[in-house]
Computed example of a mutant assay.
Amino acid sequence: KGRTHWLWRAVDANGDVLDILVQSRRNKVAAQRFLRKLMKRWDQPHVLVTDKLRSYGAAKAEIAPGIEHRQHKGLNNRSEASHRHTRRREKIMGRFKSPRQAQRFLSVHDQIASLFRPKRHRLSAKSYHHARSDALDLWTGYTAELTA
């Protein structure tokens, strides 16, 4: 008895997830909501790269007509590749029980995952070790603040 929901995901040029929004529709209004949320937090981008869904173009024309918009099958590979970790985690959890649970989990999951999973192919072994220990120190500090 599940209902289909769409996962809107924004990824920067480095492949880091900026924001996620779970919505039941995939139309112009939904795209506007996501773009407004994104631009409120991160300001306007120089270039917007999306898949070929026409809702993006219609929403962008109203919200930010001056931004360059590129729609091409292969240009949004960073966004598509970032879904892999989410799908793996979703399968382990036995699917999400509600859209609210999915939104709450995914908005935190990708930020924490990017903290603990540095881009291994771009780092030497020593740099990778330092990045992981820095992430653990940050996490220890955050959890100490929450428990105090």
Rank of each mutant, 00 (worst) to 15 (best):
S24C: 11
T50D: 12
K52H: 11
N27H: 11
L48S: 10
R54W: 00
A13I: 09
A31S: 15
A58L: 10
R9H: 00
K60R: 01
K37F: 09
A30G: 15
F34Y: 08
L35V: 15
A59P: 09
H46T: 11
Q44W: 07
Q23Y: 04
L38R: 05
L53G: 13
K60C: 00
K40L: 08
Y56S: 00
Y56L: 01
A59I: 09
N14R: 11
K60I: 01
R41M: 05
R25I: 06
A13T: 13
L53Y: 00
K60S: 01
K37C: 10
D12S: 14
A59V: 07
K28H: 10
A10Y: 04
V49K: 06
E62C: 05
D16H: 05
T50R: 08
D16G: 07
R36C: 14
R41P: 04
R33D: 10
A61W: 04
D51T: 14
V29W: 00
V47I: 15
V47C: 04
W8Y: 15
K60Y: 00
R33A: 13
I20S: 03
W8D: 04
D51V: 10
Q32V: 12
L35S: 08
V22C: 12
D19T: 08
A13H: 14
S24A: 11
V11L: 08
L48K: 02
V17K: 01
V47S: 03
M39N: 10
D51S: 14
E62Y: 09
M39P: 04
S55Y: 00
V17S: 13
V47Q: 06
L38F: 07
N14V: 03
R54Q: 01
V29K: 11
